[in-house]
C-alpha cells in the first residue's frame, strides 16, 4: 500500500468506522435474526427459512408489502410530478439573482418538525378539518369528505408534501446545468418549444428526476410515522408491521425477515431505475 492510499484510508476511517458500527453491523444482525426463529421467550438459533416463508405467504404480510410498494410509488409519482414544474419555474423563469431566495423559501417547511407537519395534515384533512369546513362553507360539498383522512390517500398527500423539497432540489440542479444554447439549438433546428422540452430539456433533466425518485421512494417505503398518524387501518404499511413484530409481538426474527424483504424490494426498484437512466443516457451513466 503506498502513502497516498494509506493517507486516504486514514482520512475516511472515522466515517468508515461509524458506518460499519451503525449501519453495516445492524444490517448484518437483522440479516442473521431473519434466519433464526422465536420460540416463545427464547430465540432458537438454528438457521431456517421459516420466517421468509411466512412473510411471503401470509396474506396480511403480502397485502402490507404490496400496499407499501403501491403507496411509495404513488407518493413518488405525485411528488416528482409536483416538484418538476416548481423546479422548472425556478430554473427557467426566476431571474438569477432571485433563485437562491426561492430555493430558500422552498426549504422553509423543514423549519418545523416532521411530526408537527403530519399533525397539521390531520387538522387540514380531518372530518371537521380545515378542508372540509371550507368546502362546506363555500358550498362545494354538503357532507364532509371522508376519503381524505385515515386511508392510503392521506398517506400519499402527507408524504408527498413532506418529500417535495427533496425532489425539487435535484431536479432544479439538473435543470440549472442545462446549457441554454442547447434549447436554442433545438428551436433553430426546427423544433417547437413543446417538442424541445421533450427532446432536450426532459432527457437532460433525467439524472435529476431519477435522483428525486430514489430520494423519495427509498425512505417512503419504510415510513411508519405517517401511516400510523393519518393512515387509519387501511393506510398501514409494512414498516408498521415490522415495528409491531419487534415491539408488541416480540417476534424479532419475523420482523427482521419482513425488513429484509422490504429492503430487497427497494433495492430492486432502485436498481431498475438506475438501469433505465443509463439506458436513456446512452450508457454513460451520468
Amino acid at each position: 500500500m503506498d502513502r497516498d492510499a494509506r493517507r486516504g484510508l486514514l482520512l475516511i476511517s472515522p466515517t468508515a468506522l461509524y458506518a460499519i458500527a451503525l449501519l453495516a453491523a445492524p444490517l448484518a444482525a437483522i440479516l442473521l435474526f431473519s434466519f433464526w426463529s422465536q420460540d416463545f421467550l427464547e430465540i432458537d438459533r438454528t438457521l431456517t427459512l421459516k420466517n421468509y416463508r411466512e412473510a411471503l405467504t401470509e396474506p396480511l404480510y403480502r397485502l402490507l408489502l404490496w400496499r407499501s410498494l403501491l403507496i411509495s410509488l404513488a407518493v413518488t409519482v405525485v411528488t416528482v410530478l409536483l416538484a418538476f414544474p416548481i423546479a422548472y419555474f425556478v430554473s427557467f423563469h426566476v431571474r438569477p439573482g432571485r433563485k437562491a431566495l426561492w430555493i430558500f423559501l422552498i426549504t422553509i417547511p423543514f423549519w418545523t418538525s416532521y411530526l408537527v407537519r403530519v399533525f397539521l395534515w390531520k387538522v387540514i384533512l380531518g372530518f371537521n378539518g380545515v378542508l372540509n369546513t371550507s368546502l362546506i362553507g363555500i358550498g362545494v360539498i354538503d357532507e364532509p369528505l371522508t376519503f381524505i383522512l385515515y386511508n392510503a390517500n392521506a398517506v400519499v398527500i402527507t408524504l408527498a408534501h413532506a418529500f417535495a423539497p427533496f425532489a425539487i432540489l435535484p431536479i432544479f440542479v439538473a435543470l440549472e446545468k442545462i446549457d441554454r444554447s442547447l434549447l436554442e439549438a433545438s428551436r433553430d433546428l426546427g423544433e417547437s418549444a413543446m417538442s424541445t422540452f421533450f427532446r432536450v430539456t426532459l432527457p437532460l433533466a433525467m439524472p435529476g428526476v431519477v435522483a428525486a425518485v430514489l430520494i423519495v421512494f427509498i425512505p417512503t417505503i419504510g415510513d411508519y410515522v405517517t401511516p400510523r398518524l393519518v393512515g387509519g387501518p387501511d393506510g398501514l404499511m409494512i414498516a408498521n408491521m415490522i415495528q409491531t413484530q419487534f415491539l408488541r409481538l416480540n417476534n424479532a426474527p419475523l420482523g427482521a425477515a419482513l425488513a429484509v424483504v422490504a429492503m430487497v424490494m427497494v433495492s430492486v426498484v432502485a436498481l431498475a431505475f438506475i438501469w433505465l437512466n443509463r439506458r436513456w443516457l446512452g450508457g454513460d451513466g451520468r
Binding site: 444554447s181 436554442e184 439549438a185 433546428l189 417547437s192 432527457p203 443516457l281
Partner: peptide, 30 residues
Amino acid sequence: VAPNRRPTNMVFQSYAIFPHLSVAENVGFG
C-alpha cells in the same frame, strides 16, 4: 416568426452539441 420557422440555421459559439445524443443523432436532430 419563431426561429424554428425561419430558413436559417445557426452554429453556436458553444456549438450546443446535445450531450445525450450520439454524433449521428445530433446531426440528424433537425
